[in-house]
Design a protein around this nucleic acid. Structure first.
Length: 950
RNA sequence: GGGUGGUUAGCUCAGUUGGGAGAGCACCAGCCUUACAAGCUGGGGGUCACAGGUUCGAACCCUGUACCACCCA
């Protein structure tokens, strides 16, 4: 299918009519594929969750990536933007489990692993298209032929390969360690998936009786320990005091009797005990607290696990030594009272029991922080379990170096500190997850628990020389999603094969992502990629802020302030928006409040703005290193900008189609306006290129907006009219103006294309022929390169003068309440030779744009209103219709302004230190300014006197 | 408690080696001027958070304070 440009553009800009048409055509024609020629440029999309949908953050990042990609492609690079999705372990599994529960009332265990996974794949097939459809709507020029999914066969091979190599090198190990356990989802999660939240809590102060009649320095026969987690008392292995704490020096090494359990546990000296906090004694439960684990380790304490995977109290404790072997020295019996109780019920009961025993000294209200699972929302339990870990230290070192030595650069730079801070005290990474959906750990166990790591059972037998008589069972865990997405840049290019794509496009050029994901993903990609390819994954990391709502709030379903990028594009009526925001909520009780807010914020729903406007808005707001507060008004403003471009194009087309535009390089005469706009265009090309190179999309967008609206539309198009609509214009002048109109527009379209691909392509197709440009698509057109020889400083200052005169007249007109269309006679006084030359050269422009009846030089003047252009006076004769008082007042305002400025400058120049120490150029500038202002001020005063005398 | 970023017009934000405070939107006034009322023309509006310091000169550099946001403990 080919898009056939209409004969002329519709009167109003209708993005819906053009965008999808072009998206389809570009893709069908294969324009998104790498050209195979030129320097390579590549970006890997941060893979969104395959079953998710795009939010504003995606739209933001994708707009940036597409802008970079299109810009580089236009610079004729061999450009690859590779797309793909992530299987998103926990998130996806949860969605399918919920669906299963709702539709069939079953759990995944009812189905069994294989059947459940079938369901997940079905769901992936069903919903996986959402995100790619949305990407297409955004105009993303990704190479769809190379779309990847983290659970693809080929990618899984890379994941296995990495796991096996790391294991064989001793960098992956299995061990019993404390992990962040999610008691609801029944899986370990990483530190990063834990959200710490402040809350009101209690500090319970318990008495632990001293054994053997020992007493403290102040004569008590017990120690007081304070805890926020009473239920862990059951797993205590010692009590720690600070070695410097004189109060307890005498009892170090003595024992206390653990209440309710009756276990003798020692008092140890450890710096972890804070002398200032509570009594200075702290109970140590190595199997239920990360800090306590370290203390326990230092003092060779056993690990006593008292909780089940549901975070309930076990019937009998599990006791391990630090090396993970079973400890048989400690009695695992737990008080019957607590068995099977949930952790919070156990806490309540335990406190009550202690109280009854007279061992509860006091309860203190405190503020503390609790860890929550970011997916399940329940409090995380540090729990001893068998997990797979990656030894991080050997991987972290080169990863830190790569950023230190500049192989990888963060934009903005301050994020490098965040990266270093995190990398410096990074812990071993728990990569196993007790889920079904994901890359299954490629490890097998025999009956005695020996571990065999290989691609498959057969491979394991070969590798380890195991006969068929040995029965093997595969590890049931899967790998952390980030383990696989850590391989994203090279795993998707065919690694471990040394493919051409890998050689060409790796390392990738830039990664565009949010700061919230630096640790999750960026750091891990750097570590794993360096390890396996000896290359960095990307040379630059462009870090974006978050998109927030107009009040600076994070967008979230539960707040009901989420905006869907497609609703910005297509628009949505209020009812549909309400439905969208209030359905399928985790907390349905909020629905009413959300509905109310939504009605208030969007009483009319949301209008359609089009993809180009959305993209341009996001780019214009993309200042580095800060979050963006979304503003519908900005979106509207940039939609209007699209309309402006559209209409400018209509004007250009209507004046050039079927006319001689000088495409064959025929002789032309360029007017001052032509030379000026061409000169400004060179500056604009240079500035936009510079801004894109430094990732300042906001400045690029603003520069573009200003040039198009303020220079091209407001002035140049107006200045072209007197030439085009003048019967006396020479063929060369007409040709020159038409050629400039259309050529500058053509460059404007090329400059804007990376930011606003659709509207620019649509117009370009109609303009290219008139501009003498060839090509099937703007996507492949050449990125504009400024030409020094077309810079014309004289034209720029001449136009400034012309604009000055026109603005002076407009001001006089407005100040005296004269109708905009009324032709005015103007007298010019005190014109320099240059003024006079400029006046003669630009009579036509002045007359048309300022709506003048006449414009004449005059030595003697009638009473008039006057405005200065430099030292030249522009007079509007009174002729009976000028408001004398208003004019006197207007002059006074001008005089006041000048006098203030004069005073400031006088003070400066009167300062000896300034004159002697400031650079001569600065002093000269001030002197010139004061001179000019004084002259101007005098003239205005004279003028005012004359009026007053009337 | 430690760290990072922020505080500029009513709102959202620019301000790139320190040298005349800007844009968009909103507001006021006037205009359907043959590309555009999603527009045109003119206009009002800021002690650049606060207090010190460096400097001839500070929105910008330094120190401290307040408040906001985020990260870490």
């Amino acid at each position: 299918m080919t898009s056939k440009p209409e004969a002329s553009l519709d009167k109003t800009y209708q993005p819906a009519d053009i965008e999808q048409r072009w998206a389809t055509e570009w893709e069908n024609k294969g324009y998104f594929r790498p050209s195979g020629q030129g320097e390579a440029y590549s970006i890997m999309i941060p893979p969104p969750n395959v079953t998710g949908s795009l939010h504003m953050g995606h739209a933001f990042q994708d707009s940036i990536m597409d802008t970079l990609t299109r810009w580089q492609r236009m610079q004729q690079k061999n450009t690859l933007w590779q797309v793909g999705t992530d299987h998103a372990g926990i998130a996806t599994q949860m969605v399918v489990e919920r669906k299963l529960a709702a539709e069939e009332g079953k759990t995944r265990h009812d189905l069994g692993r294989d059947k459940f996974l079938e369901k997940v794949w079905e769901w992936k097939e069903e919903s996986g298209g959402t995100i790619t459809r949305q990407l297409r709507r955004l105009g993303a020029s990704v190479d769809w032929d190379r779309e990847r999914f983290t659970m693809d066969e080929g990618f899984y091979k890379a994941v296995q390969e990495v796991f096996i190599r790391l294991y064989d090198e001793g960098l992956i190990y299995r061990g019993k360690r404390l992990v962040n356990w999610d008691p609801k989802l029944h899986t370990a999660i990483s530190d990063l998936e834990v959200e710490n939240k402040d809350q009101q809590g209690n500090f319970w102060h318990f008495r632990y009786p001293l054994a053997d009649g020992v007493t403290t320095a102040d004569g008590k026969n017990y120690l007081v320990v304070a805890t926020t987690r009473p239920e862990t008392l059951l797993g205590d292995t010692c009590v720690a005091v600070n070695p410097k704490d004189e109060r307890y020096a005498s009892i170090i090494g003595k024992d206390v009797i653990l209440p309710l359990v009756g276990r003798r546990i020692p008092v140890v000296a450890d710096d972890h005990a804070d002398m200032e906090k509570g009594s200075g004694c702290v109970k140590i439960t190595p199997a239920h607290d990360f800090n306590d684990y370290q203390v326990g380790k230092r003092h060779h304490m056993p690990l006593i696990n008292v909780m089940t995977l549901d975070a309930a109290i076990r019937d009998q404790a599990e006791v391990f030594n630090l090396d993970g072997t079973i400890n048989e020295a400690v009695d695992p019996t737990l008080p019957e009272l607590f068995r099977g109780l949930d952790r919070y019920e156990a806490r309540k009961l335990l406190v009550a029991e202690m109280d009854t025993l007279g061992l509860l000294e006091k309860v203190e209200a405190i503020n503390n922080t609790l860890p929550y699972g970011d997916r399940s929302g329940v409090v995380i339990e540090p729990l001893l379990t068998d997990q797979w870990f990656v030894k991080i230290a050997p991987l972290a070192e080169p990863a830190i170096k790569a950023v230190e030595n500049g192989d990888i650069q963060f934009v903005p730079k301050q994020y490098e500190n965040m990266y270093f801070a995190w990398m410096r005290d990074i812990q071993d990474w728990c990569i196993s997850r007790q889920l079904w959906w994901g890359h299954r750990v490629p490890a097998w166990y025999d009956e005695s628990g020996n571990i065999y790591v290989a691609q498959s059972e057969e491979a394991a037998r070969r590798k380890y020389n195991l006969g068929q008589d040995v029965s093997l069972e595969q590890d049931s865990d899967v790998l952390d999603t980030w383990f696989s997405s850590g391989l994203w840049t090279f795993g998707t290019l065919g690694w471990p094969e040394q493919t051409d794509e890998l050689k060409t496009f790796h390392p990738t050029s830039v990664l565009v992502t949010g700061f919230d994901i630096i640790f999750f993903w960026v750091a891990r990609m750097i570590m794993l990629t360096l390890k396996f390819t000896d290359q960095v994954p990307f040379k630059t990391v462009y870090v974006t802020g978050l998109i927030r709502d107009d009040n600076g709030q994070k967008m979230s379903k539960s707040k009901g302030n989420v905006l869907d990028p497609l609703d910005m594009i297509d628009g949505i009526d209020l009812d549909s928006l309400l439905e969208k925001r209030t359905s399928g909520m985790m907390q349905p009780q909020l629905a009413e409040k959300i509905a109310r807010q939504t009605r208030k914020a969007f009483p009319e729903g949301i209008g359609a703005h089009g993809t180009d406007a959305l993209r341009f808005t996001l780019l214009a707001m993309a200042t580095t290193g800060r979050d963006i507060n979304w503003d519908m008004k900005r979106l509207e403003g940039y939609r209007n900008f699209c309309n402006k471009i559209w209409n400018a194009a209509r004007y250009v087309l209507s004046n050039t189609e079927g006319e001689d535009c000088g495409t064959q390089n025929e002789a032309v005469e360029l007017t001052l306006a032509d030379r000026w706009i061409i000169s400004r265009l060179q500056e604009t090309e240079a500035a936009i290129t510079r801004h894109l190179e430094s990732y300042r999309f906001d400045l690029a967008a603003n520069t573009y907006y200003e040039f198009v609206w303020n220079d091209y539309c407001d002035w140049y198009l107006e200045l072209s009219k007197p030439v085009l609509w003048n019967e006396e214009s020479s063929p060369e002048a007409l040709r020159g103006t038409r050629r400039t109109l259309v050529r500058v527009l053509e460059v404007i379209l090329r400059l804007g294309h990376p930011m606003m691909p659709f509207i620019t392509e649509e117009i370009w197709q109609r303009v290219k022929g008139l501009a003498g440009v060839e090509g099937d698509t703007l996507m492949q057109a050449q990125w504009p390169v400024p030409n020094e020889s077309r810079m014309d400083a004289a034209a720029v200052s001449d136009i400034e003068w012309v604009k000055g005169v026109i603005l002076a007249v407009r001001e006089l007109r407005a100040a005296n309440n004269l109708a905009p269309g009324k032709p005015l006679p103007i007298l010019i006084h005190n014109a320099s030779t240059e003024d006079q030359q400029r006046l003669e050269a630009n009579r036509l422009f002045l007359q048309k744009l300022a709506k003048l009846e006449s414009i004449e030089l005059a030595d003697t003047l009638p009473m008039s209103a006057m405005q200065l252009v430099g030292q030249m006076e522009v007079h509007l004769p009174l002729a009976g219709f000028i408001d004398k008082d208003a004019e006197i007042a207007r002059l006074q305002k001008e005089i006041d302004r000048l006098q203030q400025d004069i005073q400031r400058t006088e003070a400066k120049l009167g300062n000896e230190a300034f004159v002697s120490k400031a650079p001569a150029a600065v002093v000269e500038k001030e002197k010139a300014k004061i001179e000019e202002n004084r002259l101007a001020c005098n003239k205005l005063q004279e003028q005012q006197e004359q009026l007053k005398a009337l």
